[in-house]
Design a binder for these strands. Structure first.
Lengths: 308, 308
DNA sequence: CGCAACGGTCCATATTGTGGACCACGGATC
DNA sequence: GATCCGTGGTCCACAATATGGACCGTTGCG
């Protein structure tokens, strides 16, 4: 019990360009990495719910580029949980409409309610998303690379926006919905580096077991990366998550000055030699400041508590 | 236990126009109506999950027009469940990021993950939503009233789209995310009327207890409404859900010919005398056929199963 | 024809979620 | 300022609930 829970994201990001992979190339994940706040410190009585929510997210992420959906087998494999459990949860999710099952293939994908929830959530004032879209587009256009918005959630970073640049190179290392411990990836590292030393200690402690599944991201390495990021003024991911995929990120601060998100740009290694890095960082910083300003504005223009 | 579970929707749709309601006017719901498939027939082993999902939806619906969020008290009241339970579930939802709690007011609203899920779900091929947007806009424009897309989910209908017309009158009887048993409301009734008699029997049986909370929608009344709808060629809701709020709906059939959704238009009673009804019905039918055609097209242009 | 992988089901077990009772707080009202 | 109500939040004995290993029926490959 309480072993490796759940899973995630780019475990299995199918290499898209070559459609010629033999059937031998298993699409399934070979590692199961945690997808949620470290399971250990959960005090309370709701693990079935937490498992369900994690699985829901997992269905969304895995089925993202597959209209067919995800197979039960793959979900059990990736989530690292017994098949019967996964299925029981899936049945519940289907019953509520958050997941639907393809009657033909028996595969699972997000359902009606997931869309409704999104509609409801989108309708809500999503200040950050709102404020960042323009910036993302501008960055993607001028850099010609793929741009991301990573939002801090506890000790983890969640990719909430992704904007393709006009360039020919597509990046599959990060997609909307992916979640990684703070420090893994450029945007995530940018947020981490912007935290206080005390907060960093907490984060590292909290994500320790999760990070066990990311080779080469032990505490010391991460602290080193934080130091470098602070010195340089930007966070650089030199291909340590996925070989050959580099990225550069800077933090975004909310109205209260807390680093709540990050902008990042990803591309191939060749695009990240020092002079280009500085140029990119300047661009990102400008946009990050612009988002911060927008957040500040929208904050003070809403002192309304309760009804007029 | 297993008494009235959960709740919904337009229980408490605050009358928006008059901002001058004394503090005496409680905003909270006074009735708790079921929000999910009838709880009785749930085979099992996942009621905590189902409760969590229902609550999640509830947070979304109730907090829709309130950036502040919903209070714990209101959620317990509307959901009809013990406060401790509601809170425990909310904590789990918050921990996973699907709900967030305003640190100032302690109110709950949809969180980051809800938006992510929506993004993921929207990215998915949402044929129906895609095919209907244009139609909804056209109907709203020509009718000058508010137009809805209601999707069938089991024995219930869920409002998934809503398009305001240019007219001055706003309708607050139905909003995205609301769920009612089939037969309650114009669109919902349109779907029901398009089902086979056997299916209608099943639906009525399945929603019997739920409909207990909708006064004046017993089996006989509904069968009568179905007969009338079939005769007229459209479903008319003559203000029986919310007094003064009338609506007219027609079913939408998928590629296989099954009634999976409905288009409907809502407005004040004065706009629904027989000649206008026929005119409206004709308009809706045209658009319904157009959506059906689009669905058929998108269906046959996607025979791709598996990878090339 | 066996083998492996698939989706799906069963059911004894104890872990998990349950919810009534309780506390502290804040703002009306007397 | 004493009293009341409603709020958000916590506790914990209890048993209903979720759990997951074992199992079944199919399918498709070698």
């Amino acid at each position: 019990m309480m072993a490796g829970v759940s899973a995630n994201a780019d475990a299995q990001r199918s290499a898209a360009p070559p459609p010629e992979l033999g059937r031998a190339a298993r699409r399934s994940a070979s590692w199961t990495i945690a997808h949620t706040a470290d399971e250990a410190d959960r005090p309370s009585g709701s693990q079935s719910i937490q498992r369900a929510l994690v699985l829901l997210n997992l269905v969304g992420v895995l089925a993202r580029d597959r209209p067919e959906g995800v197979s039960l087998a793959e979900l059990t494999r990736v989530s690292g949980r017994p098949k019967a459990s996964v299925r029981r949860v899936l049945v519940a999710l289907v019953a509520e409409g958050y997941v639907e099952q393809d009657p033909g293939t028996a595969c699972y994908r997000l359902g009606l309610q997931a869309g409704v929830l999104g509609e409801l959530a989108g309708h809500r004032a999503d200040d950050l998303g709102e404020a960042s879209t323009d910036s993302l587009i501008r960055i993607a256009d001028t850099s010609t690379d793929t741009t991301f918005l990573t939002v801090r959630h506890g000790s983890y970073g969640v990719c909430t926006r992704r904007q393709e640049g006009p360039g020919p190179i597509r990046n599959y290392a990060l997609a909307v919905g992916d979640r990684h411990p703070l420090g893994i990836g450029a945007g995530s590292l940018a947020v981490l580096s912007a935290l206080s030393d005390d907060d960093i200690d907490d984060v590292l402690a909290s994500t320790a077991t999760t990070r066990g599944h990311y080779p080469g991201f032990d505490d010391e390495t991460l602290r080193g990366l934080v130091r470098r990021s602070r010195r340089d003024g930007y966070a650089l991911n030199d291909g340590r998550v996925i070989a050959g995929s580099w990225a550069l990120g800077v933090p975004v601060h909310d109205a209260a000055g807390r680093p709540v998100a990050a902008l990042s740009v990803a591309g191939i290694a060749e695009r990240f030699d020092p002079p280009q890095c500085d140029e990119l960082a300047a661009l990102l910083h400008t946009e990050a400041r612009s988002i911060h300003a927008a957040l500040t504005r929208s904050q003070e223009s809403r002192p309304v508590r309760g009804r007029p």
